[in-house]
Simulated assay, not measured.
Amino acid sequence: MDERGAVSIEFAIIVGVFLAVFFSMVDMAHYYATRHSLQEAVNMTARAAMLDPLLAGCDAATTRAKEQFLLLRQDSLNICVVQNDSEGLQSITVNASMTFNIGVYHMLTGSPDLSESLSVSLPKA
């Protein structure tokens, strides 16, 4: 019996599985790095909003985050700062949302994107 082509077929099967796992790992690493950047953008915006009252709203906060965090998708990033004054207490709430496009996730589940929303509330001194 001739088994000369068996090694090539086994190699093709193993390489396909290896590449799928490898690109899944790369996509997930990119997702977690981007998610961390989004969390840092929210934290940085909250700290800046404590010092700068003009940072309230969505436009200034989003523009500031886009300038400092290049890993974040510029077209789907939205950061809003809400300053609350209730019962003599001032607080700042920062809400951020962004859509992630993950290739392997899209191939496996059929959904186009993952969406992430984060918020932080801090008492204003």
Results as ranks from 00 to 15, higher is better:
Met1Leu: 08
Asp2Ile: 05
Glu3His: 13
Glu3Pro: 01
Glu3Asp: 14
Glu3Met: 11
Arg4Gln: 11
Gly5Cys: 07
Val7Trp: 04
Ser8Thr: 15
Ile9Asn: 04
Ile9Gly: 02
Ile14Gln: 06
Val17Glu: 01
Phe18Glu: 07
Phe18Val: 10
Ala20Ser: 12
Ser24Cys: 14
Met25Thr: 14
Met25His: 12
Met28Leu: 15
Met28Trp: 14
His30Glu: 12
His30Ala: 10
His30Trp: 11
His36Phe: 13
His36Pro: 00
Glu40Thr: 10
Glu40Gln: 12
Val42Arg: 04
Val42Glu: 09
Met44Trp: 09
Met44Gln: 12
Met44Lys: 08
Thr45Asp: 05
Thr45Gly: 02
Thr45Arg: 06
Ala46Leu: 06
Ala48Glu: 14
Ala48Met: 14
Leu51Ile: 11
Asp52Trp: 13
Asp52Pro: 02
Pro53Tyr: 12
Pro53Phe: 11
Leu55Cys: 05
Leu55Gln: 03
Ala56Tyr: 02
Cys58His: 11
Cys58Tyr: 06
Asp59Val: 08
Asp59Asn: 14
Ala60His: 02
Thr62Asp: 00
Thr62Ser: 09
Thr63Pro: 05
Ala65Val: 03
Ala65Gln: 02
Lys66Val: 05
Glu67Ile: 03
Glu67Arg: 11
Glu67Met: 11
Gln68His: 11
Gln68Leu: 15
Gln68Phe: 11
Gln68Trp: 08
Leu70Cys: 05
Leu72Pro: 02
Ser76Pro: 00
Ile79His: 00
Ile79Val: 09
Ile79Tyr: 03
Val81Thr: 07
Val82Tyr: 05
Asn84Gly: 09
Asn84Val: 05
Asp85Thr: 10
Ser86Cys: 01
Ser86Gly: 07
Leu89Ile: 02
Ile92Ser: 00
Ile92Cys: 00
Thr93Ala: 12
Thr93Ser: 13
Val94Lys: 08
Ala96Tyr: 06
Ser97Arg: 08
Met98His: 05
Thr99Phe: 10
Thr99Gln: 12
Thr99Ser: 14
Thr99Glu: 14
Phe100Pro: 02
Asn101Arg: 13
Ile102Ser: 10
Val104Pro: 04
Val104Tyr: 00
Tyr105His: 03
His106Tyr: 05
Leu108Phe: 09
Thr109Lys: 07
Thr109Asn: 09
Gly110Phe: 03
Ser111Thr: 12
Ser111Arg: 12
Pro112Ala: 12
Asp113Trp: 10
Asp113Leu: 03
Leu114Ser: 08
Ser115Pro: 07
Ser115Glu: 15
Glu116Asn: 13
Ser117Lys: 15
Leu118Asp: 00
Ser119Asp: 09
Ser121Gly: 04
Pro123Phe: 06
Ala125Cys: 06
